[in-house]
Design a protein around this nucleic acid. Structure first.
Lengths: 219, 219
DNA sequence: ATCCATATCCCCCTATCCGGGGGATGTTTG
DNA sequence: CAAACATCCCCCGGATAGGGGGATATGGAT
């Protein structure tokens, strides 16, 4: 229902207030034009850099910010915390041309409400804005694929089921005793599993094993 | 480009072959009707349970499976690995009425290509099918929100920046020495940070701290 | 039938780590 | 200025980790 002391989103007379931070003039003006002409949406500010935007954002308190990742100065996704501080409750929709995992996950960690590739139509952007205004999230399909892939394990892991389970627990900081207790097996068995894990991963310490296994998505 | 020995997806004469596993007759037949009448899409099988579907899926090798989470017998999301084994390369789109975090993350871990709530239009389902056929992913906005939220930390953490950083490393199985080396500070400092973390979280061991911090999304 | 991977358990050893206790000092920030 | 933060110092005893050497039983692949 989302109120913020103004009117509700569901009020047909209420315009969703949108700010755009994007350094490419053509793209910025294009978005502004397309979205500004859409009934129910209002562009309350367009900026070509974060530094330029910060003050104004605090003053205008938009509902949604369309944020380019490539900006002169600070990287767009790194500016998200400051933008949310300047306009608490604002929904940040990140726009990008590249699908870089590092950038995507930084954006998500920083509290972006959506992550869209720029090759989408303005209709899709409007749809995403509506989604996030209703408390949802929004991701283009390429981004969604990467995010979903990050949850999956490598099916070609050299580790057995039990070994994976043990290494999972090791990676959570649990001691051999704790692991043995939880799996209801002897500490010696846990030890053997760990020995075999080290052998298979060609390492000889906990954190090497965790590092290697994480990199290869074995755990 | 995705070939599978048949024709390419981009061939306008090729029909995307879809199977539906859904125990509610009305819903199943409804989807089958709506999707079957869509040009470019073909329903190659409808099943009311996983057990019933498994054999046929292996024989028909559909491109996409629409899978209900609530099934008699095995839970839909738990059947995903077997479905992918029966039809390697198949894209599984999970359909649900509830947005349960546990079920969502199980689906993602098991390699679902999409996760949709049932209140969406058949047009949206078609869109999602196209997205996954092109190698993308697809999530309804409520699901996307939950997934994105899972990446975020609690902004109200009692831990300082440095403490969070240290606990992060502790949670990765690193020893105090290793942490000290990586942060280029003394082991004693790391120890002090850990002491303070334990005090703040009201615990007195590594794995308690990790558990509490994980539950509250401090790390 | 045999071999290999898996899973379970047993014993030895030493160096390191962990948790708990007591402090101190400088900087940042509200 | 006080509180939070980040840094470093000392002492102690028990637990843990890693490396070495085994054994036994099951189940699947050849």
């Amino acid at each position: 229902m989302k109120q913020k002391g103004k009117q509700t989103v569901n009020d047909p007379a209420y315009n969703t207030r949108i700010a755009i931070i994007e350094d490419d003039d053509t793209i910025r003006d294009g978005y502004a034009y397309l979205i500004g002409n859409e009934p129910g949406f209002e562009i309350v500010g367009t900026y070509s850099s974060f530094e330029q935007a910060e003050q104004q954002i605090a003053a205008t308190q938009p509902d949604v910010i369309l944020l380019d990742v490539q900006l002169p100065g600070i990287r767009g996704v790194d500016a998200i915390p400051q933008l949310k501080k300047a306009a608490p409750g604002v929904h940040v929709l990140v726009l990008t041309v590249y699908e870089s995992e590092e950038v995507i996950f930084t954006a998500l960690r920083n509290g972006a409400s959506g992550y869209l590739t720029k090759n989408i139509s303005s209709g899709k952007i409007i749809e995403s804005v509506i989604d996030v205004m209703n408390g949802g999230g929004s991701m283009s399909s390429g981004i969604a694929r990467l995010v979903m892939k990050s949850f999956q394990k490598n099916p070609a892991s050299p580790l057995s089921k039990r070994e994976t389970q043990v290494l999972d627990m090791v990676a959570e900081g649990k001691s051999r005793n704790k692991i043995a207790a939880e799996l209801i097996i002897d500490v010696e068995t846990v030890k053997t599993h760990i020995k075999n894990i080290y052998y298979k991963l060609n390492v000889n310490s906990k954190d090497e094993a965790i590092k290697v296994a994480r990199e290869s998505k074995y755990i």
